[in-house]
Amino acid sequence: MIDLDDIDRALVLALAKDAGASAGALGRQLGLSQPACWRRIQRLREMGVFRKPRLDLDLEALGFGVTVFLGVKLATKGRVSLEDFERAVSAIPEVQIVEHVLGAFDYRLRVVARDIPDFERVLRRRIMTLPSVGRVEANVVLTEERRPGPL
């Protein structure tokens, strides 16, 4: 665990709300000079507090109106089958997130598609043909509420 002081925690929270905020604006908000704030942001990056920056895309605006969480139980298990499955599923562009989980399923996938027929195509032609896929359960997302920022 990384040791953060109160200013570091306030900086992380402020950046979670607005990742594009300038060091000058953040510094004014936290009572720091722009250079001091910039140095703290750089230090937090070097410590690994921040992952690489990403765009937060509006998938629906781009034509992907369906999001499905897919539980996948592998038919066979073992290190080789896990690695083969992970490598193969990661190559499918519609699969946005791959999580190896404990419980009823071995993996949880976040899959986006244009519509339900498009999801069915991805499921039948891409996911169900992957190595070691056994049982699959789909949960279609109806609405999504995002809670930005750290816990």
Rank of each mutant, 00 (worst) to 15 (best):
V49P: 06
V49E: 00
V49N: 09
F50G: 12
F50K: 10
R51T: 03
K52V: 12
K52F: 06
P53A: 02
R54D: 11
R54K: 02
L55D: 04
D56V: 08
D58L: 12
D58V: 05
L59G: 13
L59H: 05
L59C: 09
E60R: 01
L62W: 07
L62M: 00
G63K: 09
G65F: 05
V66P: 08
L70F: 03
V72Y: 14
K73R: 07
L74T: 14
T76C: 05
T76N: 03
G78D: 14
R79C: 12
V80H: 14
S81I: 12
D84C: 03
D84L: 04
F85T: 11
F85Q: 12
R87V: 08
A88T: 01
A88N: 04
A88D: 09
A88H: 07
V89T: 01
V89D: 13
V89F: 02
S90R: 15
A91L: 07
A91F: 02
I92K: 02
I92Y: 04
P93K: 00
Q96C: 04
V101Q: 14
L102D: 03
A104V: 11
F105W: 00
F105M: 13
F105H: 03
F105A: 13
F105S: 04
D106T: 10
R108P: 01
A113E: 04
A113K: 12
R114S: 05
D115K: 15
D115I: 05
I116G: 06
I116Q: 11
F119G: 02
F119C: 00
E120D: 15
R121Y: 15
L123N: 05
R124W: 05
R124M: 11
R124F: 03
R124T: 07
R125T: 14
R125E: 14
I127Q: 00
T129L: 01
P131I: 12
S132L: 05
V136F: 02
V136H: 09
E137F: 15
E137T: 14
N139K: 15
N139Y: 05
V140H: 08
L142G: 12
T143C: 15
R146Q: 14
R146N: 02
